[in-house]
Write a protein that binds this DNA or RNA. Structure first.
Lengths: 208, 208
DNA sequence: TGAGTAATTATGCAAGCGTATAATTACTCA
DNA sequence: TGAGTAATTATACGCTTGCATAATTACTCA
C-alpha cells in the first residue's frame, strides 16, 4: 500500500496564483501545448485534480493567466512612470529607454506575448484585453509626446499619429530585442530608440 | 462491406504542397493545436496515413510549412520591389506604403507569424529562418534608405540604426493593422508610415 | 495487356489529454 | 478535544493525438 501523499492546505488566493504562475512559466518555456493540467499541477506542487477545484475548466485557468500577465505588465509599466523625472523631454526619453531595455525586453515576455497574440484574432475576451492594453500604453505615450511638444511650443501637430508610430517603433524594437537578443549590443537598442524618437518628434531627447 | 475510398495518384510535389497549404490554413484559422494530422489530411483531401508517406513526422511537416511561409513572404516582397519606381525617394515611399497595406497586412499572415514567433526562442531551425528573413528584409530596407540619403547628398549618417528603427516601425504597424484592423481608417496606416519615415530620415517622402 | 510497384487507404495501438468523481486528510471551531 | 468540513489526493473514464503497419488500388512500362 503506497501511502497517500501528505499535503498542506493553502488559501484560495495562494493556490490560484501558484497555478497561474505555473501556467505562465510553462507557456513561456514550451508554448501553450506544454501547459497541460498535469504539468501545471506538478510545477505548482499539487495534484491535477486540484485545478478543477479552483478553475471550472482549463480554459478558465489560461484566461486568468493571460489577464494576470497583461495587467502585470501594465502595472509594472505604470509603476515605472512614477520614477521618471518631471521634465517632459527627460521623462519621455526615460520612458522610451525603459521600453527597450531589460527587464522589459525579456524573451519570456515576448514568447508569452506571441502566444496571446495568436488568440487575439479569434477570441473576443483576448481581443478585449489586447485592445485595452494597447490603447492604454499608446494613450500614455501620446500624453507624454504631447507634453514634450508643448514644452517646445509646438501645439499644431498630430499627436495621435505620432503616438501610433512611436508605439509601433517601440513594439518592433521590443520584439526584436527579445527574439534575437544576440544581434544587438548592450544599450544599442536604447540608443537607437532615443535617436529614432528624437527624429520622429524633431526634438532633442537626452540619452539616458 | 463499405467499399474503399477511391483515389487518384498525384505527384510527390503536388501532395507535399497540398499538405503544407492545408497545414498553414489550419494554423492560421485555429492556431497550431488545430493542425492535427487528421484535420490536415481532411483539408488536403487525403487520409491521415499519407502524411507519414511524405513526412517522417508531423514536426517535419510543420517545419516545412514554416519555411514555405517565410520564403513565400520574402519572394512576394522581393517581387514587388521590381514594380517600384527608380527614383530613390519614391521607391522607398512605395516600399513603406506597401508594407503596411493589404495584402501584406493580413490577419492570417499576422496570426501565422505570431505562431512561428513563439517557436523562435526555443527552436534552432526556426530561429535560423527568422534571422535570415529578418536580416534579409532589414538589409533591403537599409539599402533603400542609404540610396535615398545619398540622393539627398547625405552620406554621413548611420544607415544601420535607421534601418533597425525603420524595420521596427514597419513591424509594429503591420502587427497592429493585422491585429486590430478596425482601429484604423483605410490608408491611415499608409499615411502614418510615410510621415513617420519622412521624419525619421529627415527626408520628404511623397505620399503614394 | 498484365505483372510489378509505389501511392494511397484502412485499421489499430499506445500514450497523453481534460475532466468527472470518490476517497482521504488537514484544518477549524464550538 | 473531537466532530464537521473544505481542501486535497487518488483513480478512472472517454476522447484525441501521432504514428506504425497491413491491405488495397491506380498507375507504369516491358
Amino acid at each position: 500500500m503506497n501511502q497517500r501523499r501528505p499535503f498542506q492546505r493553502a488559501g484560495e488566493e495562494a493556490r490560484r496564483t501558484a497555478l497561474i504562475e505555473a501556467t505562465l512559466d510553462l507557456i513561456a518555456e514550451g508554448g501553450p501545448q506544454a501547459a497541460t493540467v498535469r504539468a501545471i499541477a506538478l510545477k505548482a506542487g499539487v495534484t491535477p485534480g486540484l485545478i478543477r477545484h479552483y478553475f471550472a475548466t482549463k480554459e478558465d485557468l489560461v484566461a486568468a493567466a493571460h489577464e494576470t500577465l497583461m495587467t502585470g505588465l501594465t502595472e509594472a509599466s505604470a509603476a515605472r512612470l512614477d520614477d521618471l523625472p518631471d521634465d517632459p523631454l527627460a521623462r519621455l526619453a526615460g520612458f522610451v529607454a525603459n521600453a527597450v531595455s531589460p527587464p522589459v525586453t525579456d524573451p519570456r515576455a515576448v514568447s508569452l506575448w506571441a502566444a496571446s497574440m495568436q488568440l487575439v484574432p479569434r477570441d473576443a475576451a483576448m481581443r478585449k484585453v489586447h485592445e485595452e492594453t494597447y490603447l492604454g500604453f499608446r494613450n500614455r505615450l501620446q500624453r507624454m509626446i504631447a507634453d514634450a511638444l508643448a514644452a517646445a511650443g509646438r501645439r499644431d501637430e498630430d499627436p495621435r499619429a505620432l503616438a501610433i508610430a512611436g508605439n509601433a517603433l517601440l513594439d518592433g524594437l521590443w520584439i526584436e530585442a527579445g527574439a534575437l537578443p544576440d544581434h544587438f549590443k548592450p544599450d544599442e537598442m536604447k540608443s537607437i530608440a532615443i535617436k529614432a524618437f528624437s527624429r520622429l518628434l524633431d526634438l532633442k531627447l537626452p540619452e539616458v
